[in-house]
Amino acid sequence: MNKFSWYEAKSVEDALSKVNATASDILGKAPNSSSVIFKAGGIDLLDLMKEGLVNPSTIVSIKNIPGLDKIEYSEQDGFKIGANVTLEELENNAVVKEKYLALHQAVAHAGTAQLRNSATLGGNLAQRTRCWYFRSIDHQCYRKGSGTCYAQEGENEFHAIMNNKTCASVHSSSVSTALMAFNATVEIAGPNGKTRSVTMEEFFVDPETDSRTENILASNELITGIAIPAVNENVKSFYIKQGARESHDWAIADVAVVMEMSGGKCNNAEIVLGAAAPVPVKAEDAAKKLRGKSINESVASSAGKASVKGATPLANNAYKVPIFRSIVKRAILNAV
């Protein structure tokens, strides 16, 4: 790691007045004497810094900003979760466990217990892909401005099977998979007291839209929290993550299914796939197969198939297609 200075931000305004870049802005660039970036839990950032990919001159810690570590819940409005809430706090939240099972499952399977004690929700959303080319100082890939996605012709067993022609990386936040399925929104603070709220679909951007990063955060913006709409007792959900191993691992494929049931029928459904494309994607064709139907093996199976229709696997990752089919089906059947 290169040398940097350290500053503890006192407030969101204080932090925003200090920083001038995101980690992604300076990723892959030579150390610069005036690059000031945020750090929350630091799990992702320190990994990038240790690899030599990100070299800030100053880090502004937002970890101790008052108010960003709160979890608020009401039956009417659902959750407002501060960006600095740790994954461990979220994992152990009883309401999340009871009413938002898929989210609980996704959080509980993220990283290790040690990491969840440090990792923040905001940082989890804003983390960068774990693509091995991207993470390697030895590879100047598309995400670092070269125009070359090494995964296209290279080693791509863990890479995207959809929208994978520009950059085949997959986003690593399995928590996002579940949040998107619950139609969560991301609260973002910008300069001069400006704030905005975007849906998860808006938060994530395709590599064609922005080669540099997977989200819309600008250099002077900060995630302050996540809002998750209320759910009623008819909402059932389930999350499945398939990694190379059951112990802590990144997803080879993960899925969150959220269904609103009524008298044995599914009124509404959201299915989100993680590790399928460069960012989490809603499998709308699959969700359509559920809406208005009684959920059984055959309906679930048809949704599984629909979820990967049109997939364009690379040389080594066609195996992900049947895995998605299977875990989508299983998540649906497990949810009800």
């Binding site: 080319y133 030895d138 590879h139 290279g154 080693e155």
Partner: peptide, 13 residues
């Protein structure tokens, strides 16, 4: 995992 394009081991962690 060796990358044939660049000759690096890409999972050296």
């Amino acid at each position: 995992v060796m990358d044939k394009q660049t000759g690096f081991m890409i999972n050296a962690n």
